[in-house]
């Protein structure tokens, strides 16, 4: 969603500060995995509000449907069956963009304004500025952005930035029948999570906890997990996600270093020319060749005679 320039905190491929006059409250969506029943109402609401429709796929033997995020499915329930303490546990995680405080997608993006972060924490793709290079995919530690085969633009969850902008909760939070998706200020969501975690601990989930990974500066989509010590159980949710070191190198020191090296080479050449002058062919050799040429024409004339 565009046209909210005053609320923008960061903009891809932009080196000057964004307008910062206004400040908005930092928001977050809290997904309480322990309360999710896997009904997929959130998936349906997401399609409906955002007006995107995925292709009807095929059953692959699991409940995941569709089986992966796509340009039309910005959120997907991932079902994992794990055995804990001799009992089967059905861990259902609503996957989608985590709205990182330090977004790898935005850092990697080469196109100014194709990815922006609002001061409330939402990370949004502006497809009108997207060039389709796929760099955001390399930047994201959560494997979220998807490039459309139709238009080559990148798509992902917007956290319903259009709804949030007018004081509404995201569509998924609005429809969740069990209250597993909560939405509010990040501070409020942390308080709410604390209550849920205390409750879970009292029911024997000693390792219950909040997933707000600090490797990406925290996220604006957080999970309450019964097994916060092992996030991998939830369909490989990364335990300690961060922007890949290769991406950090590429978008960090490599840029100023390469520019300085190229700039110095160009300037060095110019000043070399100015100070040392060109490398001319010596007068001596030119005269020598002149004499040779004359001798040759002389010789030819002799022959002709």
């Amino acid at each position: 969603m565009a046209l909210q320039s005053l609320d923008i905190q960061r903009r891809s491929a932009t080196t000057t500060p964004a307008p910062q006059a206004r400040e908005t409250t930092e928001i977050a969506k809290l997904i309480d995995v322990s309360a999710c029943i896997g009904c997929k109402a959130c998936q349906a609401a997401c399609m409906e509000w955002n007006d995107v429709r995925d292709e009807v796929g095929n059953c692959t033997g699991v409940y995941d449907n569709p089986v992966d995020l796509t340009e039309n499915s910005w959120t997907v329930m991932r079902f994992a069956e794990v055995e804990e303490n001799g009992k089967l546990e059905w861990l259902i995680r609503k996957d989608g963009c985590m709205h990182c405080e330090d977004p790898g997608c935005l850092k990697a993006c080469p196109s100014p304004g194709a990815i922006i972060q609002y001061s409330n924490g939402i990370v949004d793709f502006h497809q009108e500025n997207c060039i389709g290079c796929g760099y955001c995919v390399t930047g994201c530690p959560f494997n979220v952005p998807r490039i459309s085969k139709k238009d080559n633009k990148a798509y992902k969850c917007t956290l319903c930035s259009d709804r949030v902008a007018v004081g509404q909760a995201p569509a998924c939070a609005k429809v969740c029948p069990t209250g597993a998706i909560q939405f509010g200020s990040k501070a409020d969501m942390k308080d709410y999570a604390d209550k849920r975690i205390t409750d879970l601990k009292s029911r024997g989930y000693q390792q219950a906890g909040l997933y707000d990974p600090q490797g990406v500066g925290g996220t604006h989509v957080m999970y309450v997990l019964h097994h916060a010590d092992r996030p991998q159980l939830y369909n490989n949710l990364p335990a300690d996600p961060s922007i890949s070191p290769t991406v950090a190198l590429w978008k960090g020191v490599a840029k100023p270093l390469a520019m300085a090296a190229l700039g110095l080479t160009a300037l060095g050449s110019l000043f070399h020319y100015v100070m040392k002058g060109p490398n001319e062919v010596s007068k001596e050799l030119e005269d020598e060749m002149e004499r040779q040429a004359e001798a040759e024409t002389e010789g030819e004339r002799e022959n002709a005679r």
């Binding site: 390399t138 590429w250 490599a254």
Partner: peptide, 17 residues
């Protein structure tokens, strides 16, 4: 791809130099 972008950018900068 992550490795490739760094290699591509570094080798390209070297080649331009």
């Amino acid at each position: 791809v992550r490795t490739a972008v760094v290699v591509h950018a570094a080798a390209a900068a070297f080649m331009i130099g």
